[in-house]
């Protein structure tokens, strides 16, 4: 097991290098260091000297990938790529263009993101499974039909509409929760109710419909028929057999997103003024702060790879037939 994990971790290294190369290429093709300097130095009275100074200070005055002028190994290390991308592997994230420490920023912003994403994930999973189980239980009836119609309709509506509509009705017209903002500790609950509801409703359509097919598939299997033939009540069949067995693909399927919950949600966070990593990323994209965007891409990829590993591990936990080879 341990050996497997180590092997998977080693396998992740070339992928991370690839990711770094891709993002580095993308961002530096878009924005030369000069552009970044001008962007950060502001609107009024910028001079070429100031731009040179800015670049020199942040190490953008070096060549991109290959420093022919430097001696020995420094040909590789005295470059922007090495300074800005390779250091990420050592979790040295450097500073944002506004000179704030990125690692520190991430460690403080992670919690609000998690406080929003985790409830959305857990409540969403519970609601989706319940809804899907209900539809599967009442399969073929009018309830099932309406359930599917509701699901398809819900998944045909853009997320933006949920947010706009939810804020308008619940926060503005009915004044039930604060319209935006965030506070630490228990106070956060008041701010999170609305975004969590919106997140859950927004994910309900696709999720419940998928799980319904999973349940139906499970119900078509022989052992379920046998159980029914034995005269077990439908309720017992559903909960004891179908739910239990269908949860395996459901849970192994969602494991992959668990690490990525730390990243938060781009849109919801900016609409509700939650100071998490999602709104951090959006801010960085809009301010063209590529130091931050690069770090977020890196972290996002690491978390995704972590998710893939967790998925593999969870498969072996629920199904002993799968072996690490």
């Amino acid at each position: 097991m341990l050996a497997y994990i180590v092997r998977r971790a080693l396998y992740a290294i070339p992928i991370l290098i690839g990711i770094n190369l891709v993002t580095f290429a993308l961002f530096f093709l878009v924005n030369t260091p000069d552009d970044m300097a001008r962007m950060q130095l502001g609107v009024k009275r910028e001079t070429p000297e100031a731009i040179e100074k800015w670049k020199a200070q942040r190490g953008y005055d070096r060549p991109l990938l290959w420093n022919a002028a430097a001696p020995g190994v420094k040909k590789l290390t005295e470059t922007i790529f090495f300074a800005k991308s390779v250091r990420l592997f050592a979790l040295d994230f450097g500073r944002a263009e506004d000179n704030r420490d990125i690692a520190r920023e991430i460690s403080t912003r992670m919690w609000p993101s998690l406080a929003l994403a985790l409830p959305v994930f857990l409540v969403g999973l519970a609601v989706n499974v319940t809804f899907a189980l209900g539809m599967a239980f009442f399969r073929g009836s009018a309830l099932d039909l309406w359930g599917v119609i509701v699901c398809v309709t819900l998944m045909s509506i853009s997320t933006l509409f949920y947010i706009i509509g939810g804020q308008y009705l619940i926060a503005k017209l009915w004044r039930l929760v604060p319209i935006s903002g965030y506070a630490g500790g228990l106070d956060a609950v008041r701010f999170l109710i609305l975004p969590v509801i919106i997140g859950v409703v927004g994910g309900l359509g696709a999720g419940a419909r998928l799980y319904r097919t999973l349940f139906l598939e499970e119900m078509g299997k022989d052992y379920v028929r046998t159980a029914r033939a034995k005269g077990l009540a439908e309720r017992v069949v559903m909960f004891r057999h179908v739910l239990k067995n269908a949860m395996i693909p459901i849970l192994t399927g969602v494991v992959v997103v668990i690490p990525s919950l730390f990243l938060g949600s781009l849109i919801t966070e900016s609409f509700f003024g939650i100071p998490g990593l999602g709104s951090y990323t959006i801010d960085a994209i809009q301010a063209q702060d590529f130091a931050v965007v690069r770090v977020m891409v890196f972290i996002g990829s690491v978390l995704y790879i972590l998710g893939l590993m967790l998925t593999d591990i969870s498969y072996t936990l629920v199904d002993p037939r799968v072996r690490f080879d």
């Binding site: 804020q167 926060a171 503005k172 319209i179 935006s180 903002g181 609409f271 509700f272 003024g273």
Partner: peptide, 10 residues
């Protein structure tokens, strides 16, 4: 307050 609508409503 990044978005103008929450700002105004508050």
């Amino acid at each position: 307050e990044k978005e103008s609508i929450p700002y105004w409503n508050k």
